[in-house]
Design a protein around this nucleic acid. Structure first.
Lengths: 207, 207
DNA sequence: GAACGATGCGTGTAAGCACTTGCATTAGGA
DNA sequence: TCCTAATGCAAGTGCTTACACGCATCGTTC
């Protein structure tokens, strides 16, 4: 069992404490993504960070606090302005942009989303809460978007329901892409999104 | 931290070894669903089963073997005949029946599907394999079903893609229902399925 | 150059956990 | 009635893991 990490091996006395903290956070995320919260040991996290285990505790006090810090650090708020500025009015195009943003977000946090699904977290609901917040933010954006089109008579149905359905398409894509990697068309994200938008808007029935 | 379990508290010397085995399997699944594989201790599993810890090891040898036994025991093969016999030819109705079957299956195994999503399982791919097998079986059924309609010119698109999209709707429903429990319309499974079928077939655009 | 703060390093501890073992108990079958 | 197989029970073993502590080292700042 030989672990290979990308981190530099040289001892880093020269680095600033903020940098050390950052390295630990990144390492913690990496290890937790692989082994889970319980499976990730402070020992391994420190090793991956290229930092002594004691340093880890000096920074975060205990493992629980470290985990909380990881979640809070990597689940920042979504910059929604950048999304809305790209919308041009055509429903297909706009939904594509929204879908792309959703997918990128989910992809970059898919590890934490997975873990939030596994834990019916008796003690720390905060984890799931924080992991889902960015997604919910986008969901609300989609809901507003759809509501406007429904009001305009262009779409039919309940906005929140439809938003959840649309997000579900992206969600499934991200969650099951590894499981169904033999379907090679899953690899082309943008084509897949276009397909989802098409089905979402027009259904699968022949005209 | 007071744990309350449904199992009978009385010591059961009278039970047959098969019954004991069954109790342990059920308890293991229950505990693992709550705490995860690593978090579930043989101690707690034995307690929940109302059985001595030593008995657990006498039956299964070690924890790993117990987990494998749990998966194999609770992921039986799907009875597909009961599905196909209910199809009546109307696409809406048929998709509803299929969707309902899918949802029931996924619901009853949602815990194991969740675990399989977490890749922490360096060593045992068998787990994910077994957990997904019933779902894949239904997926193939749906693919065939859709392919027939595509060939008949009733539907458009690629059968496998569409099957995955349809399954994704159900998948998301099951996986996120707790996370979005405040959307009360998620509680009514059958209504939700009808909605999914409708969107899947007709899209959301106004006519 | 002295003081300080951040880190490395090693050692240690207490708890938790998988798993073992030896022995007593009991129900059912011969 | 005796034997056996299944279980309870209690104590124990060895390993892992979170976390603490004291001390040496080195870079920065005054």
């Amino acid at each position: 069992m030989i672990d290979q990490h990308v981190v530099a091996a040289e001892p880093l006395r020269h680095a600033s404490p903020e940098d050390t903290r950052e390295r630990i956070l990144a390492a913690a995320r990496e290890v937790i993504a692989k082994k889970g919260k319980r499976g990730a040991t402070t020992r391994e996290i420190a090793d991956v960070a290229g930092v002594n285990e004691a340093t880890l505790f000096r920074h975060f006090g205990n493992k629980g606090a470290l985990i909380i810090a990881v979640v809070q650090h990597f689940c920042g708020f979504v910059e929604l302005r950048s999304v809305t500025s790209q919308l041009n009015g055509a429903i297909e195009d706009d939904l594509f942009v929204i879908g792309k943003t959703m997918m990128d977000r989910m992809e970059s946090q898919s590890d934490m989303i997975r873990w939030s699904l596994v834990e019916a977290d008796y003690e720390q609901d905060l984890f799931a809460e924080t992991a889902w917040r960015p997604q919910i933010a986008i969901l609300e954006l989609v809901t507003e978007f759809l509501q406007a089109r429904i009001d305009a008579g262009k779409l039919r149905g309940d906005a929140t329901q439809l938003a959840l359905i649309f997000m579900g398409l992206i969600f499934t894509h991200v969650m099951t892409r590894k499981k169904f990697s033999h379907f090679d068309w899953l690899a082309d994200d943008e084509a897949a999104i276009r397909r989802y938008v098409d089905v979402f808007l027009n259904g699968v029935r022949s005209k």
